[in-house]
């Protein structure tokens, strides 16, 4: 296996605050990796850097062998818009707050980018969108506007929208955190199905531990901008090595009990 994402000594600061300090991290092609960790530890920052929503100051970051920085790159991203465009064509992202375009129908939300960016023909894009909508079980809502959908439905559309761009790496930033407990299951169901796809690399930030255990190949515990512990899900959850991890998991399981319950209910 070859690594598709490679962070090498990446340092990321917000002003005086150093969020990532010489961060090293690799993800293999097709691997499903879950990031867990306390609030403010920098999980979102890792995903946002990968999506080129945040620049980073030092170090090397590669996706599929392409460096994020250009040799003579300028600006905060140290790369031209054209280069960022090339990098982003590998990556898709699903946001905590869905971020669907409110002025477009569900179908339009999915079709827009393939037509505008990939220059796909509209009917081709629409038939692919139809396929994706069937997959997330929302075909009957294709002419609705986002405001007419529940949170869970919006998030499923957002997943379809990201997939329509055929990314190799799909990032999920707490995709179920903004949802009512009874809607979490339908979204996790869609992600679970996606996890069956061999070629798709998934990087997932979540607080749904049970789900993380089920779908990931590897779980990373993240704290203060560093990976404290990582490993296969079985070993990670049943036998965590670091005291910090144990502390987090136990405090966490206590707090999140209701949502785990609801998760069990919908399954």
């Amino acid at each position: 296996m070859t690594s598709i994402i490679r962070f090498e000594n990446v340092t990321k600061r917000f002003g005086a605050l150093t969020v990532l300090d010489n961060f090293n991290f690799e993800v293999q092609r097709g691997e499903k990796v879950t990031l867990i960790g306390p609030s403010g530890s920098g999980k979102s920052t890792v995903l946002r850097i990968l999506m080129t929503l945040e620049p980073f100051q030092e170090g090397l970051l590669e996706i599929d062998g392409i460096s994020y920085h250009e040799p003579n790159g300028r600006g905060p991203f140290k790369a031209s818009e054209k280069h960022l465009h090339k990098i982003r064509s590998n990556v898709g992202m699903v946001f905590q707050s869905f971020n669907l375009f409110p002025h477009m129908t569900v179908l339009r939300n999915i079709v827009e980018a393939p037509v505008a960016v990939l220059k796909m023909k509209r009917d081709e894009a629409e038939s692919r969108a139809t396929e994706l909508l069937r997959m997330v079980d929302l075909y009957d809502k294709k002419d609705h506007f986002p405001s007419q959908l529940s949170g869970g439905q919006q998030q499923r559309v957002a997943i379809a929208r990201a997939l329509a761009m055929r990314p190799r790496v799909l990032l999920f930033d707490e995709p179920t955190s903004a949802l009512d407990p009874q809607l979490v299951g339908e979204v996790l169901g869609v992600i679970r199905n996606l996890a069956q796809e061999h070629d798709l690399t998934m990087l997932l930030v979540t607080h749904e531990m049970r789900f993380a255990r089920e779908v990931s190949d590897r779980v990373c515990f993240f704290d203060k901008g560093r990976i404290v512990e990582q490993g296969g899900p079985e070993q990670f959850f049943s036998n965590p090595q670091q005291p910090r991890t144990r502390e987090f998991l136990s405090s966490f399981l206590g707090e999140q009990a209701p949502s785990r319950e609801s998760l069990r209910r919908v399954q």
């Binding site: 929503l53 982003r88 980018a113």
Partner: peptide
């Protein structure tokens, strides 16, 4: 800003984002 981030994640160009995401809203 979340709308602009979504547009960026979908690889829209700046001018496409302006006219098709920001302006209509």
């Amino acid at each position: 800003p979340a709308q602009l981030e979504a547009a960026r994640a979908l690889n829209f160009s700046k001018s496409y984002t302006l006219w098709h995401v920001s302006m209509p809203q």
